[in-house]
Design a protein around this nucleic acid. Structure first.
Lengths: 341, 341
DNA sequence: CACTTTTGTTCAAACGTTTGCACAAAATCG
DNA sequence: CGATTTTGTGCAAACGTTTGAACAAAAGTG
């Protein structure tokens, strides 16, 4: 079968423990034996059995990524490939592997996570975009298992997390529209159980308030991260007796939905309605017109989350619990023309 | 620490082996003991240590996914999130976990794969979109390791693979343009070391030939899967003394690049140039105008690959080595108007 | 040169499972 | 009712590592 440490030991005329120590660069191995063993190691093409290694060392050199449950829906979003790209790149660079799980139902999800965590399959996990009250967080804390949250938890503010300042970002996005002269600004939110929805809404409202503009509840609609919800939001807004002149959306895909609907109906962006999206996924610059978008450094978030987690599992001191990735508004045509009234 | 089988055994007053047998539903366990053990199992919240289990059973209930090396580049494409979505969904449904690796350099990549395969970390792997001569395939074969290729290998035609008929798909796409009256059709290809590039080119050429149209080498340009390459291709074509009236591109993202460039320069699609993309990623229907695209069932490919691999590692009989996922042309506005000359 | 320290190596236990074999008790059989 | 089969359970080895303890040999010390 596969070559084991024992095979190598025999052939090199030493004990298995010596081989193991050569492998881990133990200081008390004579250069001569080390050389000899290394030679045999190469000759036989030895590779360690990770399972055996993990069993005794209790570490796996693997991090887990828990995808949000309704993965079918959210995965559509470019957001995910971007985050994963950041995570996998950083992990690979550090010699870690990445394990992904998801579940279709809450039960399935918890099952999968349990398998990972209690089965000691990974050294730590990354939780992707938490819901308002995420049972997974309690689960992790309960088991004292290292994890990093991408997002934020109100319930547990003191956990390791990587996030951007969604409140401020939405504030800035809204501010931008106000600076363009808009006074009637709507907001297309995400599912209310996602923290990000609330945060961005808050920033939006604050910006209005600070500008002395009264918020209108009917100009805030709830959607998800699919373009259909943008389409629906568009129909809704355009049918109102009094319409907003600009919209902030929770995600670029949603902004796309809005844009598409408007174009179909013969409206022009930004003339009839200005748009600012969120996340700056690659398509926002591809659309006609290109959509202004709040870039939240998605790749960077993934990369940093992975980095933070790996540091944590290695027991390195964490300078700060919560890392905020800076955001940056990318202004494009969809919000460039001044409002007319 | 964590609850082991021994803890359970003690508490239940039986031997560890009995607990193990209860866990695996061994037929020769009395209902009474089984019940008792199960009770303790639940009470103590036992979960098997997968490492230990794998060590003796030599299976991991995990499949590996090897991402193509220049992941940074290709990952941008929605293609990947779609495939991964298919894989992870199917795997989770079967109780398997998914492990992802990649490497920045050829050496790093092989290292990562070796870690997975020789470290007995996964039961089998999925190879994503192979290059013309992929050393990974030889590697797998050499080690007799179960794997499924997404794509095709000329060198090793007899391996498990999931693919679509790229030749026929490109043939059909080109045929569609011909049916619209086009006689001057260009092709934007992908990197020449990817099999898919050659296949689609072949179909394109065959369609021209069958329609009695002579192919023009200068109307075939090489790109990658980024929109920039579409942009470049566009500039190139539009500067030619004699321009094509329609284009088939290797991917929708490339088609986007073309479309964007054309729009910038004031050209109209499909009037000035008709477009047919490939892969039908979600943005092709979002663009203005929406782009006709050859849908190759990406999600289905991932799903099927995972299914095939899991069957293979379980030792089930494989009805066929090579599974072809059907394709379907989605005709949209970008290719709908008849050519004028 | 007798003593202590350092160096290099091996032994054996441990990690948490699975599983072939052994064996006692219970059930079946003629 | 003794002999045989079946049923239920435990023992112990094995999977491939790591690692503390033990120890012999070499080196250093006064």
């Amino acid at each position: 079968m596969a070559i084991t440490i024992v095979d190598v030991a025999k052939k090199a005329g030493v004990s298995p423990s010596t081989v193991s120590r050569v492998l881990s660069n133990h200081p008390r191995i004579s250069p001569a034996t080390a050389a000899k063993v290394r030679e045999v190691l190469k000759e036989l093409g030895y590779h360690p059995n990770i399972m055996a290694k993990s069993l005794v060392s209790k570490t796996t050199n693997t991090i887990g990524l828990i995808l949000p449950r309704p993965a079918e829906e959210l995965f559509l979003n470019l957001f995910f490939s971007e985050v994963i790209r950041g995570i996998v790149t950083q992990a690979a660079r550090t010699g870690y592997d990445l394990m992904m799980t998801t579940g279709t139902t809450e039960r399935e999800e918890l099952e999968a996570v349990t398998r990972l965590v209690k089965g000691r399959r990974v050294d730590g996990v990354i939780l992707l975009y938490s819901r308002q009250s995420d049972p997974l967080i309690s689960f992790m804390l309960e088991h004292g298992f290292p994890f990093v949250l991408i997002g934020r938890s109100d319930e547990f503010p003191d956990i390791l997390s990587v996030d951007n300042d969604n409140v401020q970002a939405a504030y800035d996005a809204t501010r931008h529209l106000i600076a363009q002269g808009h006074k009637r600004i709507g907001f297309v939110s995400g599912p209310p159980n996602l923290i990000v929805s609330g945060d961005r809404m808050k920033g939006y409202l604050q910006a209005l308030k600070d500008a002395g503009i009264e918020a209108r509840p009917e100009w805030i609609v709830e959607g998800d991260f699919l373009q259909e919800s943008g389409y629906r939001a568009m129909s809704f807004f355009m049918c109102l007796p009094e319409r907003p002149t600009a919209l902030v959306t929770i995600d670029d895909v949603v902004a796309f939905g809005v844009l598409r609907g408007l174009t179909e109906l013969g409206y022009k962006v930004p003339d009839d309605l200005s748009l600012v999206g969120f996340n700056n996924i690659s398509l926002s610059e591809l659309s006609t017109p290109p959509i202004s978008s709040m870039d939240i450094g998605i790749y960077q978030i993934g990369y940093t989350a992975s980095q933070t987690l790996i540091r944590a599992v290695k027991g390195e001191a964490m300078p700060q619990k919560r890392v905020i990735i800076p955001h940056r508004l990318i202004v494009r045509e969809s919000s460039l023309i001044q409002a007319k009234d």
